[in-house]
Every structure is written in C-alpha cells, then in structure tokens.
C-alpha cells in the first residue's frame, strides 16, 4: 500500500493539530481567557483540517462504480 502525498499531509496535519489541542499543560489551570482561546482555535483547526483532508482524499480515491452501474451511465 503506497500513500499519496495528500494522504501523508492530511495524516501529519491532523495528528499535529490533535496534539496541539490535547497536549497536557496547555492552557494553564484556571486561565479563563486562555481556555476559551485555546479550545476555540483548536476546535476549528481540527474540524477544518479533517474535513478538507477527507474531501481531497475522496477526490483522489474516487469510489469505483460497479460494472453494471458504469454501463448504465455510459448508455445515458
């Protein structure tokens, strides 16, 4: 199984963002502003990176149509 470059970028970016979001020690205990900022940015990054990555991967790895399905599309 060989990976495409987009897959590797997606994998590395997602893990990096996930670690940034969940790494122990950040933000400091009882830091109200730090908590709001860290979690809001982290939340947005994780969702955006995962959806953009998944969308790109689905374009590279298109679902192969079953032979009868492809045939009926060709007829159209």
């Amino acid at each position: 199984m060989k990976f495409k470059r987009a897959e590797i970028i997606w994998l590395v970016a997602s893990i990096a963002v996930y670690l940034f979001f969940n790494i122990p020690g950040v933000p400091a205990y009882n830091d109200f502003t730090g908590s709001i900022v860290h979690h809001t940015i982290g939340f947005l990054l994780i969702w955006v990176v995962n959806y953009v990555g998944f969308h790109k991967i689905c374009k590279i790895y298109r679902a192969r149509k079953a032979p009868d399905e492809a045939e009926s599309e060709n007829k159209k």
Binding site: W10, S14, Y18, G42, I46, N50, G53
Partner: peptide
Amino acid sequence: EMGWVPMFML
C-alpha cells in the same frame, strides 16, 4: 469531546 469527533474520518 468535540476535538476527537472529526478524527473519526482520518
């Protein structure tokens, strides 16, 4: 919780 949810796609 919402941080791990989209990781399901990966």
